[in-house]
Design a protein around this nucleic acid. Sequence first.
RNA 1: GGGCACGUAGCUCAGUGGGAGAGCGCUCGCUUCACACGCGAGAGGUCGGUGGUUCGAAACCACCCGUGCCCACCA
Length: 880
Amino acid sequence: MDERLGELESRTRFEPGEVEPRITERWLQSGLFHPEPEGEAGANYSIAIPPPNVTGSLHMGHALNGAIQDVLVRYHRMKSGWAGSSSGTKWILGTDHAGIATQAQVEKALRAEGTSRQELGREEFVRRVWEWREHYGHTIVEQFKRLGASCDYSEERFTLDEGYHRAVVEVFVALYKQGLIYRDRYIVNWDPGSRSAISDLEVEERRETDTLYSIRYQVEGGGNVTIATVRPETMLGDTAVAVHPEDERYRALQGRMAILPLVGRHLPILADEYVKMDFGTGQLKVTPAHDPNDFEIGRRHELDQVSVIGEDGRMTSEAGEHFAGLTVMEARAAVVAALEEEGRIVAREPYEHEVPYSHRSGERIEPLISLQWFMRMEELAGPAIEAVLEGRVRIVPENHRRVYLDWMGSIRPWCISRQLWWGHRLPVYYCETCGHVHVVAGLPRACEACGGELRQEEDVLDTWFSSALWPFATLGWPEQTPQLRAFYPTDVLSTARDILFLWVARMIMMGLRFTGEVPFADVYIHSVIQAPDGRRMSKSLGTGIDPLQEIERHGADAVRFGLLAMSSSQDVRYSAEKIQQGQALANKLFNAARFSLLRIAGIDLDPTHPIELAALQPAPVPRTVEDRWILSRLQQMKADTAARIEDYDFSHAALGLYDFVYGELCDWYLELVKPRLSPDVPRGELEALSKTLLHVLRETVALCHPVIPFVTEELWSYLESSGELLAAGPYPRTDEALIDLEAEVAMECAIEAVTIVRGWRDSVNAPRALVLRASINAHGYESAAAAIAHLGQLDLAAPTGDPVASISVPGGTIDVLSAEGLDLAAAEQRRAAARAKLEGEIARVEGKLANASFVAKAPAEIVEGEREKLTRLRTEAEAL
RNA sequence: GGGCACGUAGCUCAGUGGGAGAGCGCUCGCUUCACACGCGAGAGGUCGGUGGUUCGAAACCACCCGUGCCCACCA
């Protein structure tokens, strides 16, 4: 042990790069992060990690959410020794197969190899993706380890692993049999980039300026209609023209036929309330195959659907020979040119509107009709709405609650099929002979109806379909495993708000439907960290900041602290200063402990002997006021920190610890204690102090552990002789008996007085080492006089002679008795300034008390407070 | 079009009915025997604007100006 302390002496800085990997290794070896699945979920604490994309790498959002979840998990794990607390703590870990993203990555790699998925074929392609996953799939997990995340790494799951697939199939089959999953030819958001349909939630609208063309169609038997469109190419698929039923202008047109230019198709002119009379001419072209609104109009009026744009994003043969094969943009130009030639374009104007883009591939969405699988949502949404209304699921911060409820209240069918190869292939089998559809778990051999051969559906499920089962599928559902019993429902789901609908809402729906329980009690929605300039952090904008690089630079503790400190209930800008603040804190704590341990070692007291409260009480000698004060402040800190963590108030939890370590422990307590650690101090006093100091250190270090686990774990190896890891607990508990308001008041006064004395000394150019003879001419400083004397460099022992200067402090003055080496002119100036300030204050308070309505209407204790303040200020002014 | 936020010190943000705060930056002074990733002392704000409620408003209400985000099928 002496050897370790000797080595500690030379470590004047906390070096995260050296310490953190070593500590990670110890944690992982310990098995501490893997709880045995014992007992019921109510008695345990669990969080399911939002599964990162399997081939992804850690970005700022992961880092923040990792820090948040780890604080919660470490806090509860450490607390598990407490009576009435959780006994097992599990952070469920896993990755998401991320259909589109992963498939796109592998396809890109294949292109680089000069091949393609089509060339390889489905089976080989899927094999290649698995290979890819073997190769890159562990990166992000390793990165979470580097962050210090205490996940259960021994039971990592994957949304496409065998057990998980069973859960997905079970759910699909059940929902199909219950009539909630169905197949339909419907207009979908077609993403030409991934060559797949995507859901409404994966579409993002972008504002763009296009040209709005007004085009004249001839009407059979004479006359014209003029329609407006930003997409002239779609007119090739028009099957009607519509006007509003109450539009007097066009009453005569209803029921007649318009003639589609370029094509010659006859289009019925019909009446539909969807048409806005005050937009454009009030005449609307109807293209059921390529516009969601027109699709609905088409269904209402049983119109033909002419698909002129194909899944490849090119014009189909139905578009006519002139246009077939062109891209949409080429077709637009060609159509416009052709119309121009016929003199049908009557106007064109710039038009700003929202254009749908794929959130996945970034390409423009092409609405088109396609045969897809859908899921009816209303029946699932009902219970999920109730769960939130009744508070069985609590959404924090609360303002997201209404967003959730609004969305759930107007929920629409979910397109769940994707034309990809990487994912859960639908458990749907079609008979090649009679077309009979089988939806079953396990491989059916032949058609039930005719014995014919079966062909499995080509499509896979939307990735979010499998993610929706995450909290229970990861624990072994549909089997009733011990894990499921012990850890489901989970306690909290922490995430950014962008996937509230995409994922969180669907987990609640699926959890309720299939387990009968909510999947988590709380949903915590954390900040989105923006770039320092307020823009979105993104690779493409070049605004991203790599958390791993920050970890390399400042340490994982620093990054965790910084992210937690900058987070709040709304979006925040990334603040490098907060990371540095975290680094400073780790270093400060390290040095405070190092200093204490070395001093205590010098006075021959085993520093690793556990210092429990019992050993402190009764203390061998009466505690000094600063001892009583720091112990009292420590109790407050414990209560505050625990409350803040439990309220998901991470920034205040982190910053509160910083303030305590800097502003109380180091700046005041350690400074006060220094002279008491000298070898001249009697043995009994030394021991008493050592015990208090060690106790405070141990508890502070433990208190900080959830936020800055590495430096605290490292320090624990010096503070705890048993070799137990700090991560195993215990979490320090508030001891009401040590709360000491008298000591707090005394120290508050002392701190204020010392600050004033220091300022005064500065103003009179007193040399730092100069001890001033002085006396305190004020009440309230008796018990802390020694503290004031030490930190103010005052000799209060001989209060004789006339004061040469008076320093104004609350309640009176501190009189300085010796003048040598001081610039007393400055002192006089300062005294005058202090006096003027006091008088200003006095006038303000007097004015307030002279206001009759204030005295009459303000609460009595406020008025009384002002009166006391006035008395105090007058005393101070007099003393000057 | 609907909704939710935000606007406080040079920067990033706390504070949400009774004397304007933190970190960083800035100025001055310290090689004080834990830490220069340090220590001490300072300067710096009409709390976006206007009006209202109140004895009292940075905070509560209304409107306005500015910024951000989410939702939404008007060509």
